[in-house]
């Protein structure tokens, strides 16, 4: 303990939680796990199809009632390739870099979700490219967004 090397108290905080997914996420995740199918809800007021599905429209505040199947194909609406590692708090480990990361608008939906891309070369990607969800094998799916491994591009830039 000196001026050049002050005392730093190091520790790892490891908290465990059990979140209730709620009705909307449960219905979505169950279909993802059991059937590899993706769903959104449609706003009764402004007609947009929202993914994630939810009871109230994020754009206009209207109620939703219809559930629709969306994807598994979609379009890249924004993208990057992450080259800076950080510790994923869910695992306590760094996610290996580089990896593609994007906004995906699933076919049939009007909103976008963040997810990973199989492609990790930035110059092979562009906004507007068609992609398709890559699902984990049925026996490995547990009902989380990670049941989609990533999205694979369906065309060359």
């Amino acid at each position: 303990m000196t001026a050049e090397n002050p005392l730093r108290l190091e520790y790892v905080a490891n908290f465990e939680y059990a979140y209730a997914a709620g009705r909307y996420a449960s219905r979505f995740m169950t279909a993802l796990r059991d059937e590899a199918k993706l769903h959104g809800t449609r706003c009764d007021e402004c007609d947009v199809v929202l993914v994630p599905p939810r009871p109230v429209c994020g754009l206009c505040g209207g109620a939703t009632s219809d559930w629709l199947e969306v994807g598994p194909t979609g379009t890249i609406t924004g993208y990057t390739v992450v080259e800076i590692p950080f510790i994923d708090p869910m695992t306590g480990r760094e996610r290996p870099v580089p990896y593609g990361f994007a906004f995906i608008r699933l076919d049939g939906a009007d909103t976008n979700i963040y997810h990973f891309l199989e492609e990790n070369r930035h110059d092979h990607l562009e906004i507007g490219m068609s992609v398709e969800a890559v699902f984990k094998p049925p026996d490995e799916r547990t009902g989380t967004m990670a049941d989609i491994v990533n999205f694979r591009t369906l065309q060359e830039k």
């Binding site: 979140y19 994923d88 990896y99 967004m145």
Partner: peptide
């Protein structure tokens, strides 16, 4: 890493890329 915990546990936590990764996607748009 801590910023990743702002994500909804069901929808976003498993598919976040830190403040920089998420921002970079928005910057591309």
């Amino acid at each position: 890493s801590a910023i990743t915990t702002v994500g909804d546990p069901a929808w976003e936590r498993a598919v976040m890329a830190g403040a920089i990764g998420n921002f970079a996607v928005m910057a591309s748009t």
